[in-house]
Design a protein around this nucleic acid. Structure first.
Lengths: 176, 176
DNA sequence: ACCTATCATGGGTGCGCACCCACTAATTTG
DNA sequence: CAAATTAGTGGGTGCGCACCCATGATAGGT
């Protein structure tokens, strides 16, 4: 007893704490996978938003994901242009995106997303998902499901669904 | 439709994502409350561990909470000595801890925890929860439950318990 | 007694994330 | 047409967290 590794039960009794901890673990593992591609969680969210709701004015995209417009600019920049895949494990996967451009080599034209100035209001930039982006999204979703299988390993299918339903309820209500 | 604030359903369909998101919200709100006291989440965890398992050699405490010994030293330092409450809202609460010492004012002797050198092995430092620490822990637990009520607002009591059970199952299995 | 391992601690690093501000270009308002 | 507003962008800041390394003190093994 007193395993020296056992987590304080007064903490695991708090759902807040369990949520925070397991959430962090989930986040960490997912972020780890994405990092192998030189991506972060927001990249996934952006791709998913574009896939689900179609092209967005960049500002609306930021509003939807509740992120600062300034930060969104950077994320879109990484998804559209060079830089995202320069890191460790880029291109290790099925090679969906990450087409080498005509540049000198350190630069990789990602092209997961396309930016186009709105002809009506030339201040605005409309962001559109490309085919490469769609392919990447599929891979990231696969990553997410893999992580999910890891994490929910101890649950039956029924329990998983139940958990998802409960969390969804909590989340949508929290979303306000 | 297309609420412009709606979160991509392909994300909310992923339990990983829900976990990560709600976990982050929970963490954020909790951290916010603790921050008003000049504390962080680890402080709570440390106090809880001491309450649940009694005094610890500092190194064991670090091992239990899976934290770097170096970081644990700093946390224990903050719980024991001055510095923790110097910030914004210290002393706003019921005033359990944070007794002003005999010092000049900017310094606050926290004393939530006591460090004592082990007489047998004088390298080791045994950390013990004080009465003030126990009182603080009670407040932090109350904070946690308040946040919990906020977050789980949309769930019935049955559902809350169910959620807790599921998360606990996931977490303990993940703990490995 | 000497060498090595262990503990606590201080200092520093890097990442992710959330903000914030200033600046430019373009549009809308009066 | 001038003034005010909005979109995108670049740059910078601060926090929390997880690491890692060096150092000084202490123990233990041989």
């Amino acid at each position: 007893m007193d395993d020296l590794r056992a987590v304080p039960p007064s903490l695991t009794g708090l759902t807040t704490y369990l949520l925070s901890r397991t959430g962090k673990i989930a986040r960490g593992r997912l972020a780890g996978r994405f990092a192998e591609r030189g991506l972060r969680l927001w990249h996934h969210a952006v791709l998913a938003a574009l896939a689900d709701f179609g092209p967005h004015v960049q500002r609306d995209l930021a509003a939807r994901l509740a992120i600062d417009p300034s930060d969104m600019a950077k994320i879109v920049d990484e998804l559209a242009g060079a830089g995202a895949g320069a890191g460790t494990g880029a291109g290790a996967g099925t090679g969906a995106g990450v087409r080498a451009g005509t540049e000198t080599g350190t630069e990789t034209e990602a092209g997961y997303v396309e930016r186009a100035r709105d002809t009506a209001d030339r201040r605005r930039i409309t962001v559109t998902l490309t085919a490469a982006g769609r392919a990447l999204l599929a891979e990231l979703d696969a990553d997410a499901e893999a992580v999910q299988d890891e994490i929910l390993d101890s649950l039956t299918d029924d329990e998983r669904e139940h958990l998802n339903a409960l969390l969804r309820k909590v989340f949508t209500h929290l979303d306000n």
